[in-house]
């Protein structure tokens, strides 16, 4: 849709004029990082960090302290415990360790399946010539517009009729289907960037489309796959709506997000549980995100965001 990062060749500075522009550039830069500008930047950075930090501290304080005083008193009166995590992970009423497994079991197939399908579809749209190709591609592209809410009631009916209701299959299928339009669009963009001569040369050598796909294109597409993979992983792990709709009543299937949201309703003032629970739910996406941030940003810039 948009390429927000056209590559610009840096302009080498001319020898004769280095003196004046440099000085001006330096002055401009100083002005940009003026005290007012720095203050605004620091205020924003602090506002964006403190809420999470406060809950993290809370998750490590004893239950009684959390009830009696704010988390900021931790710095004057540090009391540290892992009891909250123990309670939320293995406690009878919460059992987040099981939900953690559910989240993992939900997420992996919901990332692998749509990426594979989308890669094949994107290949067909990019490199196989057939009648109606453009019309079909535009149709798939346009499906990105459909809000998933529009599909939920009939899909649930289909799953109930098919005897799948309340199993992992409903969630795997739903996430895979919902991911396809955006995945095909993004991967198609990346695939089009590969030089046609590469594909044509392989075809001339007598390789069929399946061989070209696996031997020529797949190795070149690793960064694109990583980009969409991170994206889809975060999306599925953090999803509430799909899991709530299709597994809301099945305790063996529900992921962390669903139970956490439920706990806010039923145990809304038990902050020792909510804080620790929130961080159990957050730790995997945070690690994935920090480790693969580069790819995530690339994916973001290559298209736009699914919603």
């Amino acid at each position: 849709m948009t390429t927000t990062t056209p590559v610009m060749a840096p302009v080498p500075p001319g020898d004769r004029e280095t003196g004046r522009p440099r000085r001006r550039a330096a002055r401009a830069r100083r002005r940009l990082s003026s005290p007012a500008a720095s203050t605004i930047a620091v205020v924003i950075a602090v506002l964006w960090t403190v809420p999470t930090f406060g809950l993290l501290i809370t998750s490590l304080r004893p239950e009684l302290d959390i009830r009696r005083s704010g988390w900021w008193t931790f710095f004057t009166d540090p009391e540290f415990t892992l009891d909250n995590y123990n309670q939320v992970l293995y406690g009878g009423g919460t059992d987040f360790s099981t939900l953690f497994v559910n989240s993992l079991v939900i997420t992996l197939p919901s990332v692998v399946i749509p990426i594979t399908l989308a890669l094949l579809a994107a290949y067909a749209f990019a490199w196989i010539k057939f009648r109606g190709r453009n019309v079909l591609f535009v149709a798939v592209f346009a499906l990105q517009v459909v809000p998933i809410q529009v599909t939920l009631i009939p899909l649930l009916t289909l799953y109930v009729d098919g005897g799948l209701a309340g199993s992992f299959w409903t969630i795997w299928l739903s996430h895979s289907i919902f991911a396809l339009p955006l995945a095909i669009f993004l991967l198609h963009n990346f695939m089009k960037d590969i030089p046609a001569s590469l594909v044509e040369a392989a075809r001339m050598d007598g390789a069929g489309h399946v061989r070209v796909f696996f031997q020529v294109l797949l190795p070149l597409l690793t960064p694109a796959i990583a980009a969409f993979g991170v994206f889809q992983f975060l999306w599925v792990w953090n999803d509430l709506l799909v899991a709530l709709t299709f597994a809301g009543g099945a305790p063996d299937v529900v992921p962390l997000t669903v139970r956490l949201a439920e706990m806010v309703g039923t145990r809304g003032s038990d902050w020792y549980l909510l804080a620790a629970g929130a961080f159990v739910a957050m730790v995997v996406p945070l690690v994935v995100f920090l480790a693969l941030q580069r790819y995530f940003v690339r994916g973001l810039l290559a298209g736009s965001v699914k919603g």
Partner: peptide, 12 residues
């Protein structure tokens, strides 16, 4: 960083 946090987590 908040982009990596679920909306449920952010809600909490």
């Amino acid at each position: 960083l908040p982009m990596a946090i679920s909306m449920v987590g952010a809600g909490v």
